[in-house]
């Protein structure tokens, strides 16, 4: 189920700018993790708490049935109103959120359940108590956990993929992204403040940071784009259903590529997961340039 990006965007003049995509990704009515869980999963049993400190409502998860199979679903969750936003910390997880996610991943591993993650956060919580409880360490432990997790993992950026807070549930065998989702190392506002010293430059920052799904696909970071013929907040049921089809297909692809029921299959799957991230980077080797130029032209 490969989507041709050019084909997808060529018929739609004028193409939305990066900043338009940022605004679409952040649209208040855009479906959240809970909407996806309600529409695509049945028998969802939410599991709470990290067993260490608390329960982070900004990162939720549980077991559920997805297209006939039991899976573990984990996703960021913000609020739909001010009160809920405060209780869910605007979808910005604290260390206990990441530690809960790790617990659920180990749980999934124990029972051989594939993991589906839904990414939608502006970033990890930048608060005093989060620092006290080791925010950096918690995110790092999540990354480490996902690289070793012996079950298939499919990650989908459904709205805003913000920095380390997003990546912490973003390591998997397939990374999907909705057409109007964004994925960035820092918010355009933060980037504008740091590099232009002017938050008003956020639209320019969004453009130059290459945060759109098409960019991430072109860079080889994202495996597939879920098209949004209409933005997700205008046609939620259609976009959610399409997302479900992409996730199902991705899980099938992993199952057929690796046979994760066997030891060898798991080893091959983890090798491929390693290789996927090992290959990401943009650099050149100047010592090879030197060799090339030292070779006499014939």
């Amino acid at each position: 189920m490969t989507t041709d990006v050019d084909e997808m965007t060529s018929d739609a003049p004028p193409a939305p700018t990066a900043w338009d995509r940022v605004k679409l990704a952040r649209a208040t009515d855009r479906p959240t993790t809970q909407d996806y869980v309600a529409a695509l999963f049945t028998d969802f049993v939410e599991l709470h708490g990290d067993r260490l400190f608390g329960d982070d409502r900004a990162l939720i998860g549980g077991v559920a049935r997805f297209r006939g199979s039991t899976v573990m679903v984990i996703g960021h969750q913000g609020g739909t109103n001010t009160k809920e936003n405060i209780s869910r910390n605007f979808g910005m997880p604290r260390p206990e959120g990441y530690r809960k996610a790790q617990r659920l991943m180990r749980h999934a591993e124990k029972f051989g359940l594939p993991i589906v993650t839904l990414i939608d956060t502006s970033g990890a919580d930048p608060g005093i108590s989060s620092e006290e409880r080791g925010q950096g360490t918690a995110i790092a432990e999540s990354l480490m956990t996902m690289f070793g997790c012996r079950v298939p993992i499919v990650c989908t950026v459904i709205a805003e993929g913000g920095s380390g807070g997003a990546l912490a549930i973003g390591i998997g065998d397939r990374l999907l992204m909705l057409e109007n989702a964004i994925y960035a190392v820092a918010s355009p506002e933060a980037c504008a403040t740091i590099l232009w010293r002017d938050v008003e430059k956020a639209p320019e920052a969004a453009e130059t940071m290459r945060v759109t799904a098409a960019d991430c696909y072109r860079f080889g970071i994202v495996d597939d784009i879920v098209p949004e013929p209409q933005p997700a907040h205008e046609a939620p049921q259609e976009v959610i259903a399409a997302t479900g089809d992409f996730i199902e297909q991705a899980l099938r692809d992993i199952q057929s590529a690796f046979d994760p029921e066997t030891e060898d299959g798991v080893a091959a799957m983890l090798d491929a997961r390693y290789g996927k991230f090992r290959a990401i980077g943009a650099w050149r080797d100047a010592s090879l340039d030197a060799l090339d130029s030292a070779t006499p032209e014939s």
Binding site: I139, A140, L143, M144, F147, G148, S163, G164, L167, G170, I171, Y183, A184, V185, A186, C191, I194, L195, M209, R210, V211, D215, C216, F219, I221, R273, Y274, F277, R278, I280, G281, A282
Partner: peptide, 23 residues
Amino acid sequence: GARMHEGLFSLMQMAKTVSAFHR
């Protein structure tokens, strides 16, 4: 922090480095 000028490539180095140490 991150090398902002390299965008998402920069973020992904977190994953790449952790995976190397996992091995």
